[in-house]
Computed example of a mutant assay.
Amino acid sequence: MAKNNTPEYDLTFVAPQRREEVLRRIRALERYINDPRGEVALEGARELGLHRRQFYYLVKVWRESRKPEKIFTARRAKDPYLKSPIEIQDIIRRAAAELPTASPRQVWLRASEIAKEAGLKMVTESTARRFVRMLRRQIDTNDPVSSSIVIDQCAIDISTPATDGGRTMPIATLVIDPVAHRVLGLALSLNISPKYVARALVDALLQTGPHTAGQEPTIKLNVTANIAWRKLSEICVSSGTALEKRIKKQIIGGDWTSKLIGQRLADFHLRPKMTRFTENLRLPTKIEMSLAEAEELLRARIHADAPHESAFSSMPELQRMELLRKLAGFAL
């Protein structure tokens, strides 16, 4: 008699009517964990009827807990088109995934059947139609945010030497994957400068995994009209990297960090609102170390699972190496 190789999971705390859906999710999550490529994540998100960002969040929940009951109830950002229980949103996503070419009405009818079996009340047809259209727009655009790299600057609560001999919080220039909500590279400094953006990008590129097919990255960042910022932009563009720039009189930083990665980085508190202050006003409260030691520690922690797969992975190897060479020269 052939052995059943299907892993067994403890579904004790999962309601009977939800177990099939929970197991379906776990199978998709395990496929990605065993083969963590972007296309596998996209396939899993489509199978479950989720936005890719939501899929990555479920991966995080499953990796950290391994508890099936958390897979169904994991909270996500609210969808603006559907103010209803998470269970109903999940049912509509499931129906949309089952019927990818069906009309929104047919998806609503199928979702209503699933909801009835689960003892839940389905939303109105018009509400479901709006939600289905929103889901399909997300999938049809292939989640453009997943092909973007966001650069931001943020004060971090580590005590490092200041220019005047005192102590200050350094500024972390961060290269962020806005879908996986993780830092791909960083550089520490006492001020904001294009040189540190280049250093952070070099750090991210050095930790990037092998080339994978996909849309090449768009780097989103704030710049000024200063010649050094223009030079950095020219380096990126000349190497075939698209830029989405916001030109400002002064770069204050902290615009995106907390929204994308939260309030902590590698067990240290991030202080977005302190980023705008000068060194003598960024008073630290944490452990003292040199700027170089702090940068080395942070990089070791964020790169613990390197190489990373990110939007940079879609760049051809020669193009990536050319960008790395130019940025490294600029950062010196």
Rank of each mutant, 00 (worst) to 15 (best):
N4W: 09
P7T: 02
D10L: 09
P16Y: 06
E21K: 08
R25Q: 05
R27V: 06
A28I: 07
A28L: 09
R31A: 07
Y32K: 03
Y32S: 01
D35V: 09
P36L: 01
L42P: 04
E43D: 08
G44E: 01
A45K: 00
L48G: 00
L48N: 00
F55L: 01
Y56S: 00
Y56V: 04
W62D: 01
S65Q: 08
R66D: 04
P68C: 01
R76K: 07
K78Q: 11
S84N: 09
P85R: 09
D90T: 12
D90F: 14
A96N: 15
E98N: 03
P100G: 13
S103L: 13
R110I: 12
A111F: 15
S112G: 15
G119Q: 08
L120I: 13
E125G: 12
S126I: 12
A128H: 07
F131G: 03
R133E: 11
R136P: 07
R136C: 07
Q138F: 14
N142H: 15
I149H: 10
D157Y: 03
A162N: 13
G165L: 10
G166A: 13
T168R: 06
T168F: 10
M169Q: 15
P170Y: 04
I171N: 04
L174A: 05
V175H: 03
P178G: 10
L186G: 00
L190C: 10
N191R: 14
I192R: 02
S193F: 09
V197H: 02
R199N: 06
A200M: 03
A200I: 04
A200H: 02
D203M: 04
A204Y: 03
Q207V: 10
H211P: 06
G214Y: 04
Q215P: 11
E216C: 12
E216S: 08
T218M: 04
T218K: 03
T224R: 00
T224V: 00
N226I: 05
A228N: 11
W229M: 01
E234Q: 09
C236R: 00
S239D: 07
T241W: 08
K245I: 14
I247C: 02
K248E: 09
Q250L: 12
G254D: 01
G254K: 03
L265R: 00
L265S: 00
D267V: 12
H269A: 12
H269I: 15
H269T: 15
P272T: 06
M274Y: 15
M274V: 14
F277D: 06
T278S: 14
R282H: 03
R282P: 02
R282Q: 03
A292I: 15
A294D: 00
E296G: 03
A300R: 04
A300C: 07
R301V: 09
I302Q: 01
H303W: 08
P307E: 05
P307V: 04
E309D: 08
A311W: 02
S313C: 06
M315V: 07
P316M: 03
Q319L: 14
R320H: 06
E322S: 15
L324E: 08
K326R: 12
A328K: 13
A328D: 12
